[in-house]
């Protein structure tokens, strides 16, 4: 299985202070990779570096075999990298439908009023409504009227409308009821199997993440301290006690 994402010696941080120290990571296409670790391990910073929100100071990021260099976030989206940030990033002032359309609006031209591209976007939005029926019922409501679970559906659905090949998900279970977390995780697994979507999943909910992941990466203080098969990581008692807290 070929690697969709390759990260080598990645160092990045904020205002000249490194948070990530020489991260190496390989994620095969069509798999889920769980990124685990305590608060401050650098998980969110890793996602931000991968989606171009912060510039790496050293290292290499390759996507589908091509070096990403200094590509801006907007261009990475066009290459197929979607990022659902922590807190979901639902735009409260826009309606559910507008949030979803925005996910693929980059595919439209300047006006984007009509044409094949808009029809395609409408189809993608309709597919999201099939995937998340509660969103269809609330399509005209502004984002701020949604519950936490609905916001999570919207954020995930909006990212899918952008047709990503690699989805970076930051704490999708945060603040959600266990039942909703289980549904979300099951859906991610299903999407990977059906569409060959690749997911890099940052999670505090270690058990849930490892239950659906193919592989895992454990981070501590900006370094990868363990990596490998998800089931093997879950079965490693020493690792669980030292870094994963269960």
């Amino acid at each position: 299985m070929s690697d969709l994402l390759e990260v080598e010696g990645l160092t990045a941080g904020y205002h000249g202070v490194p948070v990530l120290h020489g991260i190496d990571l390989r994620v095969p296409a069509g798999t889920i990779c769980a990124v685990l670790g305590a608060n401050g391990a650098g998980k969110t910073t890793l996602l931000r570096a991968l989606s171009g929100l912060i510039r790496p100071s050293t290292g290499r990021i390759a996507f589908d075999g091509a070096d990403l260099g200094d590509l801006a976030t907007e261009r990475l989206v066009r290459r197929g990298i979607g990022h659902v940030p922590e807190g979901r990033g639902v735009i409260a002032e826009l309606t559910v439908e507008e949030n979803l359309m925005l996910g693929g609006a980059w595919r439209l031209g300047w006006a984007g009023v009509w044409g094949a591209a808009r029809a395609g976007l409408r189809r993608d939005v309709a597919e999201v409504y099939q995937l998340f029926p509660p969103l269809a019922a609330r399509r005209r409501q502004p984002g701020h009227q949604l519950s936490g679970g609905e916001r999570q559906m919207l954020a995930l659905g909006r990212a899918l409308v952008g047709r990503p090949r690699l989805l970076l998900l930051d704490e999708p279970s945060l603040g959600l009821a266990p039942r909703v977390v289980a549904q979300t995780m099951a859906l991610l697994r299903q999407l990977c199997e059906q569409t060959r979507l690749t997911v890099l999943l940052v999670e505090q909910n270690v058990r849930s993440a490892l239950s659906i992941a193919d592989q895992g990466v454990v981070m501590s203080l900006g370094r990868v301290v363990a990596a490998g098969d998800a089931r093997r990581l879950a079965d490693d008692a020493d690792l669980r006690h030292a870094y994963l807290g269960f």
Binding site: S51, L53, T73, E74, V77, R78, G82, H83, P85, G89, I91, A92, E93, L94, E98, M101, L102, G103, A105, W106, L108, G109, W110, A111, G112, V113, R118, R158, G162
Partner: peptide, 22 residues
């Protein structure tokens, strides 16, 4: 229009809009 939607998104939440290719 899509451009209007992008403009509103950029105004309301620039960092999120950027993540959506705006």
């Amino acid at each position: 229009t899509a451009i209007g939607l992008r403009m509103r998104a950029a105004a309301f939440a620039p960092s999120v809009a950027r993540l959506l290719g705006v």
